[in-house]
Design a protein around this nucleic acid. Structure first.
Lengths: 120, 120
DNA sequence: TGAACACATGAACAGATGCTCATAAGTTGG
DNA sequence: CCAACTTATGAGCATCTGTTCATGTGTTCA
């Protein structure tokens, strides 16, 4: 009842301008986009969007070596995008941030649109 | 044919799953995120979000060499994210895709938010 | 205890990336 | 045409990145 998301009005562009002049915020944003800019990482994150998964499950999804998955998971962990918990021999990963799911959805929708100029 | 929004949730995740299995769409999405993952390119795109700008104007915003700006603009042009038109000696760039603006906004908002582990 | 399984990590390497320098190309006014 | 201005481009280079290989760590079960 206090703060609902109302994404309309011109106070938004005011806030936007503030964020754009904050280099730390901008850099932080680029880091998020960077996490999503790699094919393997994108597959990992989008797979986790469907629900938590072990490393070996992610390996099947991404079709790369277990080592490659682990390295990328480490990067995602370090950036706070995923969290890990042990379950016996396995380690279960899940998304740490709902924001990532939102970005994936938006990115996918836009990538799927025919408006894309593509090559001629 | 009027039952469009019965269960938007299910429909959405269905469509989402379809997109996620399409490697071309996924790759296309990663390319968009890649464009936003660099500090200079992010500055260019967010500056253009405020309105069209010439190369020299963008140079001031980004505080790097004119050559660096041009190189990045070429990349963004090749990926269809910006368009260019001549105006006398200058070349005016503008965003070719409003999707980019959406992503920038979402990314900035999320980057600016304090870490909130639990929600709902 | 030890073998098998699941995951993490360090080193190393090929390829990608983003910058600068130098210079070319396009435009306008003299 | 030429000079000044604006932008584009190619080469070179240092750095970053994502992968594989080999090995280390941690867990389960016989």
């Amino acid at each position: 009842m206090d703060r609902e998301k109302q994404h309309e009005g011109q106070q938004d562009s005011r806030r936007l301008a503030d964020l754009l002049t904050n280099d730390d915020v901008v850099y932080s944003a680029t880091q998020i986009f960077d996490a999503l800019s790699d094919f393997t990482r994108f597959q990992i994150l989008s797979a986790l969007m469907m629900g938590e998964k072990s490393v070996s499950e992610l390996q099947i999804v991404c079709n790369v070596s277990q080592s490659a998955i682990s390295h990328q998971l480490r990067l995602l962990r370090d950036r706070g995008l995923v969290t890990a918990r042990r379950d016996g021999q396995r380690v279960i990963y899940s998304l740490a941030d709902e924001h990532v799911a939102t970005l994936i959805c938006v990115g996918l929708e836009h990538a799927a649109e025919p408006e894309r100029p593509s090559e001629e």
